[in-house]
Nucleic acid binder design. Structure first.
Lengths: 187, 187, 187, 187
DNA sequence: CATGAATGAGCGTTCATTCAT
DNA sequence: AATGAATGAACGCTCATTCAT
């Protein structure tokens, strides 16, 4: 049997992803989790605390994911594709959390903080991949920082299209090809 | 002297862009607009109606903008760059409206509808530009629909980075270069 | 017809005096005042604000009362009796307010502040009366400050007995006689 | 090692004296006593029951104190001073309990009951002392009941000044002198 | 056209009390 | 004896909306 705290988190994650933080009322949350409203406050200091817990967990997962990606990828070619594809995979496995961040980073400070850290990690890792790829001679010479930022922008846009317009055809493969072409070494 | 209705819209646009639709209370809106709360309801059916009006206006402007772009651009080369650059310009001139749509399309139906139509227009126009560019032989052969979608994704990501992380260096030029390289004809 | 704000204040004063600030709920207050709960917050920023308003009003009245007492009493003999008797009269005319202060100054900061100022004024005025009476030669030589404080203590105790044990026989006259005897000049 | 019940009482007495009965929550009480919330209800029927137990204990102590005072004092002169001074001593030894009663007798029925009995005993004892002192010829002829009540009022006022304005100079000695002068036999 | 007082449903949160373990 | 998770009623407060003037 699942612990109450985890059940609250699970239900909250779903609700916030679906209807947003504001419309996720404690009354409805308690009802859907099959507990009383007061019980929420035995496990969380406030409604905000629930959001922060969800975001912190996602942060942690993303940090682990980036770390793992770095250790795995050592010496392998084709790293730019891997940056993109690995991120696609991470997103697919954390749809709800990502939806929450993307839909509220503009307005909710905790979400904003989370988004800051995600973007920072993404950009740093992308820049490192670009530098390595240039050293390996598999891509042409570019400004690593700026190009990494362009990749982050593309990734961000792809994410939103995927999450909020899932009925569209999947263009991830096309995006990877687009990037490869943009960065490929001209012989 | 400005009409009351327009003053309400102006103040509302600023407030919603800054703090979001939920945190924009009718009480504060009335106060900042120098009118009484009841007066808002002389001009708008509901708080939602204000948002819809703002969004419809933005829609209208974007539609005009796309139309103008099409007539202007006939027969000119380098259309992909123009798609991007013209959009950057439009955004710069409608910062508040764009901020509202981007920060709420995931949660507010009217915003969602607006975003749908913007993305649709953007994608259609990009696809047309790509087709034309291919006919002119200035870019390589690609799938127009999918590539247009990739461009939309990139545009969307760039917008968000620009609006919510304005402290970052402007990478618009880099993005344009990135796209040119991705699409350029290999001789 | 009475203004809503004043009706709220009136009902609140009665309720707080009777059952205390904690037990005076906004729901009950609204009901007894014949208004909705939300209306309270059109006139007061918070429940605390109602208390503060009541206390400030009482403060103001007491300040006026002391001022008037000073101007009236110039040159008249028997001032110690007048200090006591005037205070009895003030209390009788502001029973509810006084009850509120006395019942909550130990626990509620705004009430505490109010009580501080009342005691201060009372003591200062008593000390001045004592000094004047000594100069006039109608009372014996005493330490004015300390004796004033004793009078304040007695006044405070009499007040509480009167307000919370109204079934007891009125001992105000006895108290005045007690003080006269304690201060009278021994020939 | 202290029994759990006594530890609860001790912590509760301190908390209630400091922040009041309302602000003394069972959660905080349990935490400060190093027990779980449920344990409180093994030893007390309700939160109210804790208060009543504390008050009953104080009542008991005061009753013992008065009894002892009566047996001790037989035949000794200067009894009025002793009434006052003994009470000062009792207060000093039961500060917390006294603070609880004084701060809540106006609003909490159990506290009110306690205060009734204290005042009754105080007044009765004071009246007896006065009668005896008159018989011994050490004070002038006064109405014993009413004068006792005046003494109780003074005592009550002194207590409050002492407990809630401890920064003031101690006027107990002055108060004793004041009473002696008020009651002394004029030769 | 404009006001602003009034509404009332709903919000997040608290807390004394219960009960299975 | 003790625990601590769960309860649920009540709390202070917010806010979009209405309506008599």
């Amino acid at each position: 049997m699942m612990k109450t705290k985890d059940r609250i988190l699970d239900v909250a994650r779903k609700m916030i992803a679906e209807v947003g933080f504001h419309s996720t009322t404690t009354a409805l949350l308690a009802q859907k989790a099959g507990i009383s409203e007061g019980t929420i406050y035995r496990h969380f200091a406030s409604k905000d605390d629930i959001l922060v817990t969800i975001l912190d967990e996602l942060d942690e997962r993303y940090s682990e994911f980036i770390t793992q990606l770095k250790t795995e990828g050592d010496g392998h070619p084709g790293t730019i594709e891997r940056v993109l594809e690995a991120n696609f995979k991470f997103v697919a496995e954390h749809l709800e959390g990502i939806k929450i961040v993307l839909s509220s980073f503009a307005l909710l400070p905790p979400s904003r903080r989370s988004m800051n850290s995600v973007i920072d990690r993404m950009r740093t890792f992308a820049a490192e991949s670009i530098v390595r790829s240039m050293e390996l001679g598999v891509i042409r010479q570019v400004d690593p920082e700026r190009t990494a930022m362009v990749l982050v922008a593309l990734l961000l846009g792809l994410l939103e299209l995927r999450l909020y317009w899932p009925e569209n055809t999947d263009i991830n493969a096309e995006a990877v090809a687009f990037c490869r072409q943009a960065l490929v070494k001209i012989q």
